[in-house]
Design a protein around this nucleic acid. Structure first.
Length: 892
RNA sequence: AGACGCGUAGCUCAGUGGGAGAGCACCACACUGACACUGUGGGGGUCGGCGGUUCAAUCCCGCCCGCGUCUACCA
């Protein structure tokens, strides 16, 4: 085998490596946990993405983080399950398929329920794997054999079971209630699905005439058309302007219907006229007020948002816009419209189709929240479920403590059909997991199933246990439930986290996960939210194609600090790609020097450098593991980055060159052994973050023999290396002195402008002998010194630059007098800094209170420091004047 | 309106009750043996402002200013 064949190509070609290794991992079934394992379990269920979705950066981030955790735990010896899947995204999917039908001029009603659902399933079969495939591309080590979909039979059974239980317990009830209604989707929405958007409108002042006399009360509204459904006018009970009017009646404009002036504390006397029209059928506040006071509720709208017969003959059939215009014109004509002022207000819009959402009275199924929320709050309070970062617990508590009952029915076809049947005889509802044959209340057999389906979130709330086979008692549940952590975005705390917690507590009597990791939100370089409409998004697939998956993953992981959003610009990927290349080149160097390496041979006596780099790996590994266990992903990334680049490449590889090219065969073999051992270890630590490049290199490297004799393992199957013996304190000091010396000499070179190639002569005092013994080749190599005098006596030679390493002076001889001025300059600068520091410490140490009250070790440390600084300043000063004499002499 | 977060080098951000850090950018020097997606060195910051606690504050507390987010909304 020639060198070239044995070596790595010049560049890492990411794309083929990614495909090759992912296939290999799958082939070897490495993502699937062991069945009869003695290993401790570790499990994550993926927060299921919408089946309609495509991978965006948020998914890429969350996927990368979960994969880092999964691979990390696997390599720590856990039996790891990362369970993947998608949810059916009721509204979103139905909207997509309806849009497709609309292209042919058809609606779902043209097809009918059954045929329409067939269409949706067809669509799902074709497009449902998009995001799954993209996650594979990202390297996700999910157990695909356990992939789940919320509409799978097993999960559907879980949904029916839960519904039936909750219904029979009385926690699910049916009621006529004011709900958010999307007139386009023609379904109810939860508050979470109807976010408010700022809309410019008008505030109209309208007079409602008194019934029994001249004049009237003035009210202000943004929605004049709803006055057709008014059933009262309300004022604040303590509002002196209106006190006498309470209980009197006014004539509702346009209809002449008589309504009462009532008092309720929800009215803000300071807003507008302080009198408000009350429309219980079309405004949440008014609805609450109406229920408090027992007011009539009038529904003005058809399901499609047009006005119905309750609005009166003239307005029935009109859409909202027309009705508003007409009502305003009619009021105007009657002289009842007093003023119109522009007004900005927040209006709920459908999260999916962005139509304005109408509050509408409707018969819906609700889940009673209070009894479920209480234990869910408690479980977080007592720390059984922990949020990371902890701050998010406030958000959770706030929502849970103010939670309203959850409307769970949706007027859609795509979803879990509500397992409740209405009895034609007695009108009671019977719920069951399987189709019931008789009414539970009267035994009647004329049963009709509810047409509606359940909110998608109802099924995803069960995800942590439904995916593992519940309600059956499965091995998976026994082994992997509760899960270890849920990783998700903060915007999903209400949708998922909270609901998963209360459903788990209720049905499993157990938390769904111990930790909730809330990952940062990715924004664009300017800090704006990324969105399709703004067009400021970065497509992770493009990044993977351009820079490689490892670079994308490293970038995201290294930016995932706790408690802060990520501002991501494209330049961020450059650094990560450079890192990938750096690792690649370190591996190339190693392989180039391993042609004759026999992994089976004894390592021989290792040098201090060999043992040092191995301990540095242990330090980095320790930091990385500690960081990952605390979900401090960025710290893990930077620990290993620092080791790989700043320690392994900058120091160890440079030092190893001497040995590898030297004559001492035993030393050479020891260094080769160290290269393989340390690089392999580093690859393992890096692997969870950058799985592909590490595997590619690892498979090219020779492998040290394992106790079990196996040599065909993938990186993921390895356990992390156990720590090597630490250096003795003396060895530690020696290494510190060595690196300090090299750095200081390089500094002199740089500051004096000595060209890197110029040969220099270094002199060290004899007293430093113990620390320098054996380091001569290293010092020469890293400082490019020509000569080294390690036993200098007395003071500095006249023509030299003086620096300091550890406690010793170091002299770099200067033969060319032109450098004297530079050296003087350098010394002056250094003296100035020293004097500043001395003054600072002096002041501190001459403060009696400091001496008295500060910790003794702090005082001692500072005293020592000051003494050292003074000595240094003294020699520097002396040196400076010496040099000035010399430089004067040279000039004359 | 409340709550939360943020304000540290030109930029993006770590960080800690005891002499201010990283990456990128910048400047200087160096290109044939791992790597220019590089190496070596350097410059650069009253740690948002004002007070307080402390021997000591960038860090703890209070107030203020600026930015961001969430929650609730006034019809």
């Amino acid at each position: 085998m020639t060198d070239q064949e044995k070596n790595l190509p010049k560049r890492f070609d990411a794309e083929p490596a990614e495909a090759r290794w992912y296939q290999e991992w799958l082939k070897r079934d490495l993502f699937r946990p062991e069945t009869d394992s003695q290993k401790p379990p570790y499990s994550i269920v993926i927060p299921p993405p919408n089946v309609t979705g495509a991978l965006h950066l948020g998914h890429a981030l969350n996927g990368s983080l979960q994969d880092v955790l999964s691979r990390h735990k696997r390599m720590q010896g856990y039996n790891v399950l990362w369970l993947p899947g998608t949810d059916h995204a009721g509204i979103a999917t139905q909207v997509v398929v309806e849009r497709k039908l609309a292209e042919d001029g058809k609606t779902r009603h043209d097809l009918g329920r059954e045929a329409f659902l067939e269409e949706v399933w067809k669509w799902k079969k074709i497009h449902g794997n998009t995001i799954i495939d993209q996650q594979k591309r990202l390297g996700a080590s999910c157990d695909w054999s356990r992939e789940r979909f919320t509409m799978d039979e097993g999960l559907s059974k879980a949904v029916r079971t839960v519904f039936t239980h909750l219904h029979q317990e009385g926690l699910i009830y049916r009621a006529n209630y004011l709900v958010n209604w999307c007139p386009r989707c023609m379904t109810v929405l939860s508050d979470l699905e109807a976010p408010r958007q700022s809309v410019g409108g008008n505030l109209y002042k309208i007079r409602y005439d008194y019934e029994d006399r001249e004049g009237g009360i003035e009210v202000e509204t943004t929605r004049p058309e709803t006055l057709l459904g008014d059933t009262a006018v309300a004022v604040h009970p303590e509002d002196e302007r209106y006190g006498s009017l309470i209980g009197q009646r006014v004539k509702l404009p346009l209809t002449q219907r008589s309504i009462e002036i009532v008092a309720d504390e929800f009215v803000d006397p300071a807003f507008g006229t302080g009198a408000v029209k009350v429309t219980p059928g079309h405004d949440p506040n008014d609805f609450e007020c109406g229920r408090r006071l027992g007011l009539e509720e009038i529904n003005l709208l058809h399901k499609d948002g047009t006005f119905n017969e309750n609005a009166g003959e003239k307005y029935a059939g009109m859409d909202m816009k027309t009705a508003r215009k007409t009502v305003l014109a009619d009021l105007e004509a009657l002289g009842l419209l007093l003023s119109t002022t522009p007004h900005q207000h927040e209006v709920p819009h459908c999260d999916r189709c962005h139509t304005v959402v109408e509050p509408l009275l409707s018969n819906q199924w609700f889940l009673k929240m209070e009894p479920l929320a209480k234990p869910a709050i408690e479980i977080v309070r007592n720390g059984k479920v922990k949020f990371h970062p902890k701050n998010w617990e406030n958000t959770y508590f706030h929502w849970m403590e103010n939670i309203r009952d959850w409307p769970i029915s949706r007027q859609l076809w795509w979803g879990h059909r509500i397992p409740a049947w209405e009895c034609g005889a007695c009108g009671e509802w019977t719920s069951d997991v399987d189709t019931p044959t008789a009414c539970r209340a009267c035994g009647g057999t004329d049963l009709t199933q509810d047409d509606d389906v359940l909110d998608t979130w109802f099924s995803s709330a069960l995800w942590p246990f439904s995916t593992m086979g519940w309600p059956d008692e499965t091995e998976d549940l026994k082994t992997f439930y509760p899960t270890s952590v849920l990783s998700t975005g903060f915007d999903i705390i209400f949708f998922w986290v909270a609901r998963m917690i209360f459903m788990s507590l209720h049905f499993m009597k157990e938390v769904p996960f111990q930790d909730v990791y809330i990952h940062p939100l990715i924004r664009d370089a300017k800090g704006k939210k990324m969105s399709k409409t703004a067009g400021n998004g970065i497509d992770p697939l493009e990044v993977m194609a351009e820079h490689g998956t490892d670079a994308l993953r490293y970038t995201l992981v290294s930016l995932a600090a706790q408690g802060r959003d990520i501002k991501l610009g494209t330049h961020h990927f450059d650094g990560a790609r450079a890192f990938v290349t750096k690792i690649w080149n370190a591996a190339r160097f190693s392989l180039m020097n391993l042609e004759d390496f026999n992994p089976a041979s004894e390592p021989g006596k290792k040098s201090l450098y060999d043992r040092w780099i191995r301990t540095r790996l242990d330090v980095a590994m320790g930091k990385a593991h500690e960081a990952l266990d605390a979900y401090r992903f960025n710290d893990a990334a930077s620990a290993i980055y620092h080791f790989m680049w700043r320690e392994f490449c900058d120091w160890y590889i440079e030092l190893s060159k001497e040995t590898l090219q030297g004559e001492d065969q035993e030393a050479r073999a020891a260094t080769q052994h160290t290269l393989v051992e340390t690089l392999s270890g580093a690859l393992q630590v890096l692997h969870p973050i950058m799985p592909y490049v590490t595997e590619e290199i690892y498979q090219a490297l020779p492998h040290l023999p394992r106790a079990d004799g196996r040599s065909d393992l993938m990186l993921m199957e390895q356990n992390y290396p156990s720590p090597a013996p630490t250096l003795t304190q003396t060895e530690d000091e020696e290494m510190n002195f060595f690196t300090d010396l090299v750095t200081k000499v390089r500094q002199v070179r740089g500051e004096l402008g000595l060209p890197p190639k110029s040969k220099i002569r270094i002199r060290l005092p004899k007293a430093a002998g113990e620390l320098t013994a054996g380091h001569e080749p290293g010092i020469r190599a890293l400082t490019n010194a020509e000569a080294l005098d390690l036993s200098a006596e007395g003071s500095a030679p006249p023509a030299a630059s003086v620096t300091r390493a550890g406690p010793y002076q170091v002299w770099v001889e200067l033969e060319d007098p032109s450098y004297f001025a530079e050296e003087a300059n350098r010394l002056e600068k250094s003296l100035k800094k020293l004097e500043k520091d001395i003054a600072m410490f002096d002041k501190k140490l001459s403060n009696p209170k400091f001496l008295e009250r500060a910790k003794p070790e702090v005082v001692a440390k500072d005293q020592k420091k000051l003494q050292g600084l003074r000595e240094e300043a003294e020699t520097t000063g002396k040196r400076l004047s010496q040099l000035q004499d010399l430089s004067g002499a040279a000039e004359s």
